[in-house]
Design a protein around this nucleic acid. Structure first.
Lengths: 257, 257
DNA sequence: AAAATAGTGTCTATGAGACACTATAGT
DNA sequence: ACTATAGTGTCTCATAGACACTATTTT
């Protein structure tokens, strides 16, 4: 094949970025700030919840924001997100995955801030501990099913009032929910939102809450048991006022990406 | 519900990022550099291709790299990627989407560089124009089907030799291909790799090349015609040495996310 | 006519939804 | 016994794969 036109002219830029530097030279030290913002997602009572912190200073003073922080020069993005999780929520060892990077020049009115958004998935127990913390709000989140192709999420306070979200955090939350909806079919993320042992019914409720629509019970059970990612423990529920369901756990033998 | 523990203590940090600043204060002006790298993907001759540029200076001098550049303080990430596309490849108006952000502290040995990776999809005609340019190499790319869960791509030169890729660009290319494979089922990205009018066979070849495995002809035709995203033009191929196939185009009436 | 690919019709296997039925806990 | 949910068996319908067959162009 003759697809190769290899380098032969002397006017090739010496660096990947040199032609940019021509126009950028004077401000070469004006690098943008880079932050991570983390959406801590949990599912209970048939709703989606996320942790928000209230801003006390401009910009967006009084608005609610996802917990976040600057990326240190010696830490990876994931380490920065982990640090935010630990500092702002006292959590470690939770499922954490990169979502998207938001970099509109005007998203922070002060200065250029590019943020790498992450989402973390919490089970009931972790979410419960969060609710007992001070200074944070675990807020209910809703995304229109219509909002499939885009659009922000709405966050609600304890009294059902709509919360004003800082920056583009409404958009970030909207994208988190849509991403989770999309991954649910082919990725074992539902389990991250449940304790280590759970019933099929609990798993179905998590899926339904995430998707925002009811699922067929028979089909759901068949799909899950046939997929091989579940493992029956032999143990059953206790004290439930009806026939106890079997508890399942994630099958660690199967590699699940 | 009593999920709200609103702010009431005076020790709440005044800013989202203040506790980070405690440890960061001295180097508050040492922001990381932020770049965009763009993988220009095309499909022809049953293979995947991407544009690579050869580095002429350290680090990774002599290695091959994705085209990229610094993000300007006043441009969005997408605008930066568009600019790279136009400056390095002379292309505009092509499909462009953000992939992932790579930020390992040691990915660039000189200094901290966080890169936001994008991928662009080119049709035959755009790829052909690329191949006629100087100073760039349109390289064949392969990703093990096994590499479903991760791992880098391999790039090949014109003589079939393996190219050494700079930085983590092999990982980036691997993730691009896996992302495309995943999106193919539920997103009309296959059309971006074809000219405005194409036959069902050409579309199937694009899908097969991307996926790295053969597809069932009958099922593929049914799926595509039933999906409603295709529109028959009534026009047929000419000069093909066999029965000419009907040409289809993307149905612009249907909203497709 | 031969070669080559386009396109259709039909049968079968598989998975989802619907529904009826049985099972087992607490009260 | 009653209630509520767990779990099974079976039927139907939609979709994918397999295969046979017909159609239409160039050489």
């Amino acid at each position: 094949m003759t697809d190769t036109k290899l380098e032969k002219s002397p006017d090739i830029p010496p660096e990947n970025d040199s032609e940019f530097l021509e126009t950028y030279d004077a401000s070469v030290f004006d690098h943008p700030s880079v932050t991570v913002d983390v959406a801590l997602i949990s599912v209970t009572k048939g709703s989606l919840w996320t942790l928000l912190v209230r801003r006390r200073e401009p910009p967006f003073s009084g608005y609610w924001a996802l917990p976040g922080g600057f990326v240190g020069l010696d830490e990876s993005l994931e380490e920065a997100a982990s640090r935010v999780l630990s500092t702002k929520a006292g959590l470690s060892g939770v499922f954490l995955e990169q979502l998207y990077t938001f970099g509109q020049p005007d998203r922070d009115p002060r200065t250029r801030v590019i943020t790498v958004a992450y989402y973390a998935l919490l089970d009931r127990e972790q979410a419960r501990r969060l609710r007992s913390q001070h200074e944070v709000l675990v807020s209910r989140v809703a995304v229109d099913w219509e909002g499939e192709t885009g659009g922000p999420a709405t966050a609600f306070g304890g009294d059902g009032d709509v919360l004003e979200l800082a920056f583009d955090h409404g958009e970030i939350l909207g994208m988190v929910v849509r991403r989770l909806r999309g991954k649910l079919d082919y990725s074992p993320i539902g389990f991250e939102l449940l304790p280590p042992r759970f019933t099929l019914h609990e798993l179905q409720t998590v899926h339904e809450t995430l998707l925002g629509r009811p699922l067929n019970k028979d089909s759901f059970r068949r799909r899950m048991t046939a997929s091989g990612v579940l493992e029956a423990t032999g143990v059953k529920q206790a004290d439930v006022g009806h026939r106890p369901a079997e508890l399942y756990r994630l099958n660690k033998e199967i590699p699940h990406g």
